[in-house]
Amino acid sequence: MRAVVAENGTLTVTEVDTPVPGPGQIRLRVTRAGICGSDLHARYHADAAADATAEIGYAAFMRRHQRVVMGHEFTGTIDAYGPGCRRRWRPGRAVVAVPMIRHGDDVHLTGLSAAAPGAYAEYVLVAEAATFPVPRGVPPDVAALTEPLSVARRAVNHAEITRRDTAVVIGCGPIGLAIILLLRAAGVRTIIAADRAAGRRTLARTCGATHIAPAPWPHLPPADAPALFRAGLDALAALRRVPGLPWPAVMRAATPRGPVVFECVGLPGVIEDIVSHAPFRSRVVVVGVCMQPDTFRPTMASNKELQLRFSSGYSPPEFHDALRLLARGRVDPRPLITDVVPLAGVPAAFDLLASPGHHAKILIDPHL
Score class of each variant (00 low, 15 high):
Tyr314Pro: 08
Ile271Tyr: 06
Val126Gly: 05
His320Cys: 12
Trp247Pro: 00
Asp294Pro: 10
Ala49Asp: 09
Leu267Gln: 14
Thr202Asn: 15
Ala215Phe: 15
Tyr120Phe: 14
Ala209Met: 00
Ile56Gly: 09
Arg324Cys: 11
Ala253Phe: 12
Thr255Tyr: 15
Ala254Tyr: 08
Gly57Ala: 02
Cys207Gly: 07
Phe262Ala: 03
Val30Gln: 07
Val188His: 00
Tyr44Lys: 14
Pro342Gln: 10
Pro347Arg: 10
Phe132Met: 12
Ile212Gly: 06
Ala94His: 10
Val168Lys: 08
Arg163Glu: 12
His219Thr: 10
Arg32Pro: 06
Phe296Asn: 04
Ala249Trp: 10
Leu245Met: 07
His65Ser: 15
Gly111Cys: 05
Ile362Tyr: 03
Arg201Thr: 09
Ala344Gln: 08
Arg309Trp: 13
Val107Ile: 08
Ala197Arg: 10
Ala6Val: 13
Pro218Leu: 09
Pro347Glu: 05
Ala155Tyr: 01
Leu363Tyr: 06
Gly104Trp: 00
Arg324Phe: 08
Pro214Val: 13
Gly345Tyr: 04
Arg334Ala: 14
Gly187Pro: 00
Asp339Glu: 05
Met100Pro: 10
Pro222Trp: 04
Gly232Ala: 13
Leu182Gln: 01
Pro259Lys: 00
Leu267Cys: 13
Glu15Trp: 13
Phe350Trp: 01
Pro246Val: 06
Arg29Ile: 07
Gly57Arg: 05
Leu233Asn: 09
Glu15His: 11
Glu263Tyr: 06
Phe310Gly: 08
Ala121Tyr: 08
Pro316Asn: 05
Glu318Ala: 09
Arg43Cys: 10
Asp234Ala: 13
Ala322Glu: 04
His41Thr: 12
Leu40Thr: 01
Ala215Lys: 15
Pro316Val: 09
Ala80Lys: 07
Ser113Phe: 03
His367Ala: 15
Met300Ile: 11
Tyr81Phe: 10
Val341Lys: 01
Asp332Gln: 04
Asp17Lys: 12
Thr110Arg: 02
Ala178Arg: 01
Ser312Pro: 07
Glu318Trp: 03
Gly82Phe: 02
Thr31Phe: 14
Phe310Val: 07
Gly111Val: 05
Leu326Glu: 01
Ile101Phe: 06
Gln66Phe: 10
Gln307Val: 14
Leu267Val: 13
Gly92Lys: 05
Leu336Asp: 12
Cys85Ala: 11
Phe296Thr: 05
Ile179Gly: 03
Arg93Asp: 11
Ala60Arg: 13
Leu352Phe: 12
Ala46Phe: 04
Gly288Tyr: 06
His45Leu: 15
Phe350Ile: 06
Val242Pro: 09
Arg200Val: 08
Asp105Thr: 10
Ala215Leu: 15
Arg87Ala: 13
Arg93Trp: 12
Ser311Phe: 02
Thr10Leu: 15
Phe74Trp: 08
Cys85Glu: 09
Val98Met: 03
Thr12Ser: 14
Lys361Glu: 08
Gly266Ile: 00
Asp321Met: 05
Arg200Lys: 15
Ala116Val: 03
Phe61Glu: 09
Lys361Met: 10
Glu73Ile: 07
Asp195Trp: 05
Ser113Asn: 06
Asn157His: 14
Pro243Tyr: 01
Pro117Val: 07
Arg252Glu: 15
Ala129Phe: 12
Ala121Thr: 01
Gly92Cys: 07
Ala121Met: 08
Arg86Ile: 06
Thr166Gly: 00
Pro216Gln: 09
